[in-house]
Design a protein around this nucleic acid. Structure first.
Lengths: 141, 141
DNA sequence: TTTTGAATTTAGACTCAATCTTAAAATAGA
DNA sequence: TCTATTTTAAGATTGAGTCTAAATTCAAAA
């Protein structure tokens, strides 16, 4: 599963005429290592472990740039905005009880058939959000 | 396509021990008539045409109650929260250029096959978000 | 119809995520 | 190393959404 790559970011940053900084590197590394879907605040807290003075603005600037470049995805569930460093085509499962968001490989759901959508739009991609109760919550009853 | 019904709301409101008020009625009627996906602010503005003093709190209280009762759905796209009075199982198309959100009947997309999802969750429902360029935006180039 | 108590409304204060501003600091290239 | 440019930090600002308290409205019962 192709996730956010530090190398990709370094290359893109310079090709966009931007500069690579320790803060950006720390943000990217944290996202890259993350197996969950952190919020902006969780990113800020984590990055401040390494760079105690990193400001909120820097985190948001970087996240927004990564988002605009398609290197992370924004996930909104239950009023909370999260960031998903998984760049591969994939879907999400959301637990109605604990709110957890988990990735679903695109192979786990067969390719969708679109007959003809109203207004004949040009389809670029699609994303499935599956809702229910996760395994953990089922056992805790 | 089954949309939010004023009658349903009147019945539910009383069965929940709640009271039906002109403000709630106006909010429901606006949503019911709406063919798009209005924001909370658009609802507030519209309802104030009829009841000039309707407060933001009332609109949010009502929207949250409708949402909790499954009578409207919350749609988040491009940082904007919208409300969808369409209660039927259906999907969404989002235009990457103009941001418009359009309904897609569930029949337009065949039923999905879920082999086995990680963690064996209990699946309750799923929703597809299709992204691309809408017909209008394709012509305007 | 009137009374009565609970639910609801309003207006504005409040909260919190996210953005903006500006001076100071850091970066990449020459 | 030097310099122009970008980026950063800190705090101010914005704006969506929630909360509060006092006044009002609803509907069930008398």
């Amino acid at each position: 599963m192709a996730r956010l790559q530090a190398q990709t970011v370094e290359t893109m940053v310079t090709s966009y005429g931007l500069k690579m900084t320790p803060q950006r590197r720390a943000i990217v590394e944290f996202l890259q290592a993350s197996r969950s879907h952190p919020t902006a605040d969780e990113v800020l807290t984590a990055v401040n472990q390494k760079f105690p003075m990193t400001s909120r603005a820097t985190v948001y600037n970087t996240l927004n740039w990564l988002k605009g470049s398609g290197l992370v995805r924004e996930v909104f569930e239950a009023g909370i905005v999260r960031y998903d460093p998984n760049v591969t085509d994939h879907h999400h499962f959301v637990c109605r009880r604990c709110g957890k968001v988990e990735d679903i490989d695109s192979e786990a759901i067969g390719a969708l058939q679109f007959d003809s959508l109203p207004g004949n739009p040009k389809i670029e991609n699609y994303q499935v959000t599956v809702r229910g109760i996760c395994g953990d919550c089922q056992q805790q009853k």
